[in-house]
Design a binder for these strands. Structure first.
Length: 828
RNA sequence: GCCGGGGUGGUGAAACUGGUAGACACAAGGGACUUAAAAUCCCUCGGUCGCAAGAUCAUGACGGUUCGAUUCCGUCCCCCGGCACCA
């Protein structure tokens, strides 16, 4: 029965009945379960993909059986570079390529029996969809949250486009792993930094998110508290160099100042001096270095004296100014006070360039000199060499010194973040055009709403050139009228980062066909927020941060009533093969289809779920798939054999069951409870399935006393047990369970039936096996029934030969008696 | 370096708030059924000693707390993930 015939039969049944269609505004409680939608890459679905969708499918079916109105949609993150690259390679248009892939992937998803509401399918590359992506751009623009700026940006030489900071992983392109370089271009940005504090603060609201993801977002936002202090440059110009520090308590230990070589003040200081040319050379040299080597702490620290000094406002000391490779322009003020005694980087640099090391914080009770230090002392302690702050704890001094700087007008308390604005322009073809027109007279003019969508022209040559979007060469696209003055205008030719498209798709699912607005707030009000989001940890920052940003923006526009999109987040572990993530490019994929063909969809599903808890990474191996296959066959055989007994049964009355059958009933109840707990508490499908296996094993072994064999009580109980097994198993292995359910005489889908409830009155067994220990060592076990008193139990336990033996001649010190759990004698 | 997560049989893994370590499976070995095979069913299956009953050791290492520790505490080793010249 594991053939594809069963699979196809029920897949068609579900589709014909529209069984998994979500109903807007149904009276039932809603449940929105969402998978991160895939990029339709065209590769056959491999086990890595499948695990994700199977998890979501189990949740969705389970919730349906709990009586929820479930929304479980699917769509396609369909814009993006690979479409172009593959299209170029295979000489086929990206659009054709993408839609072809969508068809293939959809078919495969159906083949493993994933139950989506396909009527809500969206593809981000469809004009019906990206019209609203563009509309959202206009909203951002209206609110001043979309702006254009010339900036040196991360450039991937392979993808031939710029990218956001979030897309650079270890100095390389997150998609193709090519080392990222810099390129100065005029770019569009979304002002995510306007939401920094809320994005950080609201992490607290994300109770259902893994700590790990929250920490990653916190780190990415990178809030720090510090003080900005002005150091005056010695000389007639009277320029000030502002520095940012989180350790103002160490400021008396400043022995030099370091500044990014490209800092305008550095340039200014050396102008017309003998240092001008060397600085130019130094800057040029650093420019050639990649971002990785420049910002790696393994890189040797390098710098040059600029021939100038600055005054430490706290003590009036003059310190030399150095341009160094380890200070970057983008963070803080681009200049840093160097305290070699208490900062490892400064310490390394000072050693190399023989600069003084001045201790200002000492560990309590110790007396250290700068020359004694083998490394910087970064911990806390007591202030020394710090003027009026001497003797204070450094934590106290930090506060006092910040106040002191503010009072004297040379500093202010400052909060800094690492998060930067989101660069959204991409110089590629296959994306949503940025809906903007440039006019010589009116400047930047947004495309009026009524003219949306700005359709991506169908062009033959979409090869990237490098720095310019392929759209720039499409005359009919570029040349247009200015919507404001009617004069000649030029369209923006960059397209949007695909992460923009995926930052709101979960809203569109609530109202996918709406032609008048991005979504009806009443519908998003009903469905949102997403109750359970499932996806890979690789989006911990990227997609998840962007989606939160979008949601908060829409909240401010009063278009939605919630300011966090995802209540619960589950990050599933990846499927590895040979220690690496499965991917087509690595050539280490295990395709799902041959396995489905061989074992049937349910076995493949069951195996993936049984192999390990879903959050854990799974090193792929076929070993063990037989186990699930056998188990399902055992279930089928058992039911087939028991079926004749199910005639003329009646509802089970547990109170009236004879002793043996009561044990059976308790066992069933325990199984129901265990399975439901495992699924609901933490998605531990592996132990849920194990519990069902255990129960089925019990069913095979259990034999009632001869006189009960054909009793109506036994037959009714057996039927109840079998039905409960089918119901509990249904979310995991739906096809077989539908077949079995029909075999049991039901005309409707098993998913329209509610899950069994464990009867709390019949969870505890009458008899319990209790371990007996002497000095913590196991000496035997006794069977105790519910009513046994402590005295009786102890007497029984003491009578065990092994217990008597090990206590002989010893003195009893204490006895530990824990009801139903353990008996332990402490003897000397 | 810092912050997470982890280290349990030949393998994937279980073990609730400290209470019988290894559930459930896979693989392996033995047996039954069969002309044979497949399928199915039964038995064994962490190490050592023992014919056995049993004893004893065992959850990365070493200590500690406890009647009792995979679980709590300390020190250390290893693996995975994230962050990192961020001032």
């Amino acid at each position: 029965m594991i053939s594809n015939v069963i699979d196809k039969k029920w897949q068609k049944f579900w589709e014909d009945r529209e069984l998994f269609k979500a109903e807007d505004f149904s009276g039932k409680p809603k449940y929105y379960v969402l998978m991160m939608f895939p990029y339709p890459s065209g590769s056959r679905l491999h086990m890595g993909h499948c695990k994700n969708y199977i998890i979501g499918d189990v949740v969705s079916r389970y919730k349906k059986m709990q009586g929820f109105n479930v929304l479980h949609p699917m769509g396609w993150d369909a814009f993006g570079l690979p479409a172009e690259n593959a299209a170029i390679k295979n000489n086929i248009h990206p659009e054709e390529w993408t839609y072809k892939n969508i068809r293939v992937m959809k078919e495969q998803l159906k083949n493993i029996g994933i139950c989506y509401d396909w009527s809500r399918e969206v593809a981000t590359c469809s004009p019906d969809y990206y019209k609203w992506t563009q509309w959202l751009f206009l909203k951002f623009y209206e609110k001043g949250l979309a702006y254009k700026k010339k900036k040196e940006a991360n450039w991937c030489p392979k993808c031939l486009t710029v990218m956001a900071n979030e897309e650079v992983i270890d100095g390389a392109c997150w998609r193709c792993k090519t080392e990222v370089t810099k390129k100065e271009l005029d770019q569009w940005f979304y002002k995510i930094t306007a939401y920094t504090e809320r994005l950080l603060e609201d992490i607290k609201k994300l109770k259902g998110w893994p700590e790990k993801v929250k920490t990653m977002q916190e780190n990415w936002i990178g809030k720090s508290y510090g003080v900005e202090v002005d150091f005056k440059i010695v000389g007639p110009a009277a320029d000030k160099i502002p520095v940012y520090t989180t350790r103002v308590d160490t400021i008396f230990g400043v022995t030099y100042l370091v500044i990014a070589p490209e800092h305008p003040l550095a340039q200014k200081i050396v102008k017309g001096t003998k240092y001008e040319v060397p600085l130019k050379e130094f800057t040029a040299k650093l420019k050639k270095q990649s971002e990785i080597s420049r910002t790696s702490d393994l890189t040797e620290k390098e710098g040059m004296f600029l021939g100038a000094y600055a005054v430490n406002p706290f003590n009036g000391e003059q310190v030399p100014i150095y341009a160094v490779n380890y200070v970057i322009m983008e963070y803080g003020t681009g200049a840093v006070m160097a305290v070699p005694a208490h900062d490892q980087r400064d310490f390394d640099f000072a050693k190399k360039y023989e600069l003084p090391v001045k201790v200002v914080i000492q560990k309590e009770g110790s007396r250290q000199e700068g020359k004694d230090l083998a490394e910087a002392y970064v911990a806390g302690g007591v202030q020394v060499n710090s003027g009026e702050f001497n003797g204070k704890k450094n934590t106290e001094a930090m506060v006092l010194m910040a106040d002191y700087a503010e009072k004297n007008g040379f500093g202010k308390k400052t909060i800094k973040y690492k998060l930067r604005d989101w660069l959204i322009s991409r110089q590629r073809y296959w994306g949503a055009p940025i809906p903007v027109i440039y006019c010589d007279r009116c400047g930047i003019v947004p495309v009026p709403e009524k003219d949306l969508p700005v359709k991506l022209p169908f062009i033959a040559d979409f090869k990237p050139t490098g720095g310019v979007s392929p759209l720039a060469s499409v005359k009919e696209f570029v040349e247009t009228d200015c919507p404001k003055c009617g004069g000649a205008g030029r369209r923006e030719t960059d397209t949007m980062n695909t992460f923009i498209c995926s930052s709101w798709y979960f809203l569109r699912y609530c109202d996918p066909k709406n032609n008048n607005e991005a979504f009806d707030p009443k519908k998003t009000g009903y469905w949102m927020p997403v109750d359970q989001y499932v996806g890979g940890i690789e989006h911990a920052i990227l997609h998840l941060l962007y989606s939160r940003f979008f949601t908060k923006f829409l909240f401010d526009l009063k278009l939605v009533k919630f300011d966090e999109p995802f209540v619960n987040l589950f990050t599933q572990g990846m499927v590895l093969k040979d220690g690496q993530v499965m991917s087509k490019s690595k050539g280490n994929t295990v395709e799902a289809e041959p396995l489905i063909e061989k074992y049937g969809a349910d076995t493949v599903r069951g195996f993936v779920l049984f192999a390990a808890p879903p959050e854990k990474e799974l090193e792929w191996s076929d070993k063990g798939i037989e186990g699930i296959s056998r188990f399902l066959a055992r279930v089928e055989r058992f039911i087939a054999a028991a079926l004749p007994l199910f005639k003329d049964t009646r509802p089970v009355v547990p109170e009236k069951l004879p002793k043996e059958l009561k044990t059976f009933y308790v066992n069933l109840n325990k199984t129901v409870k265990k399975v439901k707990e495992d699924v609901e508490k933490d998605f531990h499908f592996n132990t849920a399935i194990a519990a069902l296996m255990e129960f089925v094993n019990f069913l095979y072994v259990f034999a009632p006393p001869e006189e009960q064999k054909s009793s109506v009580e036994y037959r009714s109980l057996l039927k109840l047990a079998v039905e409960d097994v089918v119901l509990l198993l249904a979310p995991f292995t739906p096809h077989i369970c539908e077949e079995l359910w029909a075999g049991l005489g039901y005309k409707e889908s098993v998913f329209l039936h509610e899950l069994p409830e464990a009867d709390p009155a019949f969870i505890i067994e009458d008899e319990k096996e209790v371990p007996v220990q002497v000095n913590g060592k196991l000496r035997g076990r006794i069977m105790l029934s519910g009513g046994t008193s402590r005295e009786e139990a102890l007497a029984l336990a003491r009578a065990l030969p092994a217990v008597t033996a090990s206590m002989a001649g010893k003195k009893e010190v204490k006895v530990i008696y824990i009801q139903d759990k353990l008996i332990n004698w402490v003897v000397l």
